[in-house]
Nucleic acid binder design. Structure first.
Lengths: 121, 121
DNA sequence: TAAACATATGAACAATCATTCATATGTGAA
DNA sequence: TTCACATATGAATGATTGTTCATATGTTTA
């Protein structure tokens, strides 16, 4: 196959060139799409999903999260950091403990949307 | 630290035991949460996001997708298989070509929800 | 201050995964 | 049937990532 930008591509356009051109024109920029994928990646781990599910109901300290999920504290802390960096949760220190909670209701909506979609299959 | 189910956990519950018990009670079953994470994992790759974005606008054959995304046909095919298994897209053969399109409008909603969330930061 | 507790974090390891390469399958044209 | 094209797929590889272990940081109490 011939190359284009150093990448092998088909020799010719299968569909109308106009469609390809039109789609290319309206593609969001690469950064936005990458950011979108990174955002979803955060939800794409069952430990993090379980943490979010717990926090959907109640704010929780690291220790209790570890108890509920039967995982060690370090693993939970690592995942909390990822969730916090994605601004899905926020932290509040109270003495020795740190309580985590959902950043906003948007997270609930996002989870609900997916649950709804899965239910419809 | 002491162990519970072979996993190290904190020595005592930091918050009220009643809260922990209440949350544990209402946790969706493991399978559902795992499925949810698997679902999001599909969105958590920029190649797949780009494919979905293209298909949001127009149905497309593999060859044109490869052209638009400047990737080789094999990589696209592998990702299309994952998207199809997740029932996010569907295929339609027309002669030698296979045209892919979004499975339903739910996918659009899911993408829009995330875009909206990202925009609000 | 020292000790105990709760959480955070760096390094290491195992597992997962996206891409590439080579090749197979399926379809239409000659 | 044979050839050319479009797509699919198995194996290999390099990169990413979740968990664990050890340890550091931060806070309260004695």
């Amino acid at each position: 196959m011939p190359e284009q930008n150093g990448v092998e591509v088909c020799e010719f356009l299968c569909a109308h060139e106009s469609v390809v051109a039109e789609v290319k024109e309206h593609m969001p920029d690469e950064d936005t799409l990458f950011e979108l994928a990174e955002f979803y990646k955060v939800f794409g781990d069952s430990t993090r999903i379980r943490i979010l599910t717990v926090l959907c109901r109640h704010e929780m300290c690291v220790c209790d999260l570890a108890t509920i999920l039967s995982m060690n504290q370090s693993a939970i802390s690592h995942q909390l950091r990822i969730l916090k960096q994605a601004r899905l949760i926020s932290a509040r220190r109270e003495g020795k403990q740190v309580f985590y909670s959902l950043a906003d209701d948007h997270v609930r909506n996002i989870l609900d949307t997916a649950i709804e979609h899965l239910a419809e299959r």
